[in-house]
Every structure is written in C-alpha cells, then in structure tokens.
Amino acid sequence: MSGVVLNLSDTGLAGTLLVLGGARSGKSRFAEGQVTALPGPRLYIATGRAWDEEMQARIAQHKAERAHAGWQTVEEPLDVPGVLERHTHIPVLLDCLTLWLTNLLLEEQDVEAQSTRLLHSLSTRAAPTVLVGNEVGLGIVPDNVLARRFRDEAGRLHQRLAAQAGQVVFVAAGLPMVLKGQKPA
C-alpha cells in the first residue's frame, strides 16, 4: 500500500475519498494511511457498537492502536452527519459506513433521509474526508428480508457516495485499486 497517496487537498465532496472492500481486505489500514499522511489534528469517527465481548475487545484494540497515532476518536453510531458538521476543518476518517447503516436499520431510522443528510454534511466540509465501507454485494443473495434490505441499502449508499466523491478506491488482499480519481504515480 505504500506509494499510493491520493490527493485529498480538495474540500467538500471533491475532497472525499470512498474506500470500499471486503472483510479483512486491508481497506481500513489503507484509509488510515491516507489520513495519517495529512497534517494533524485528525478525527476518527467510529460507528461500531459493542454488542458482545468479542466486539468489545476489537474496539478496545482499535482504540489502543490509534491512541499513539494522534487520533481524536468520536464514537457515534447514528449521528455521523452531525459529527462531520461539528468538525468541518480537520481531516476525518469514518469507519465504517456499513456499521452506520446497520445501526440506522436496527433503530428503524429513515435510511434515505440520513444518507441525504450525510451527503449534505460532506459537501460542506473544508477538510479531507475518508469514508470506509464494506462491499457486501459480491456474494450470494441473502436468505432473509433484513439481510437483503441491508445489502440493497449498502449498495445504494455506496453508489450515491461514489457518484459524488472525488476519489474511490477498492481494496482487495491489501491492494488498492483506484476506481475514480487520480491514479497513483
């Protein structure tokens, strides 16, 4: 992943990098590298919730890894647009969109309205923003209504963001592939 540093100097959606990939693809590591290459301070918006002990341990490990790297962390499972609006002038890493979407669905919130609000928040940003999402549409059709809705909503959200983001990268096996925006040198 070294050698791939994208230009995130633009503001608003032009300064937004969408990083997609599967589970354990290296997408979060790539995204973190993009933001840590920028001058601090930097903000990490964590959307995951600790529903069980294993997830509690994961969250604690991630916090410990970021603590020495100069990250300010905000844990926000639902009001991601609000956090973005309150921190418009510092680089932000949002990890991850699909956990945020899960939280919205579980809380029975209006996904369309929240997605629109997210896009608006991104358009007003004065600093780079890196968004991480799990690409879940490459597998089989889920066997239940909630899982199919989740897959469909994630696909729609990613498409809306990709259409307007300045840059989009897909990460597989730790290798970033630029889908939109500046190509690596």
Rank of each mutant, 00 (worst) to 15 (best):
Val130Arg: 00
Val130Glu: 00
Leu131Arg: 02
Val132Leu: 08
Gly133Tyr: 00
Gly133Thr: 14
Gly133Arg: 02
Gly133Glu: 00
Asn134Leu: 11
Asn134Met: 05
Glu135Ile: 09
Glu135Thr: 12
Val136Glu: 03
Gly137Asp: 06
Gly137Phe: 09
Gly137Ala: 07
Leu138Tyr: 13
Leu138Val: 11
Gly139His: 13
Gly139Pro: 12
Gly139Ser: 13
Ile140Tyr: 09
Ile140Cys: 09
Ile140Gln: 10
Ile140Ser: 09
Ile140His: 12
Val141Ala: 14
Asp143His: 10
Asp143Pro: 15
Asp143Leu: 15
Asn144Trp: 05
Val145Ile: 12
Val145Asp: 15
Val145Lys: 09
Val145Ser: 15
Leu146Ile: 14
Ala147Arg: 11
Ala147Pro: 11
Ala147Phe: 10
Arg148Ile: 12
Arg148Asp: 08
Arg148Asn: 11
Phe150Glu: 03
Arg151Phe: 06
Asp152Pro: 07
Glu153Asp: 15
Glu153Phe: 07
Ala154Cys: 09
Gly155Asp: 08
Arg156Ile: 13
Arg156Asp: 08
Arg156Leu: 14
His158Ile: 02
His158Tyr: 13
Gln159His: 14
Arg160Thr: 10
Leu161Tyr: 02
Ala162Glu: 08
Ala162Val: 07
Ala163Tyr: 01
Ala163Phe: 01
Ala163Ile: 00
Ala163Asn: 13
Gln164Cys: 09
Gln164His: 13
Gln164Trp: 00
Ala165Cys: 13
Ala165Gly: 08
Gly166Cys: 10
Gln167Pro: 02
Gln167Trp: 05
Val168His: 03
Val169Lys: 02
Val169Arg: 03
Val169Ile: 12
Phe170Gly: 01
Val171Glu: 01
Val171Lys: 01
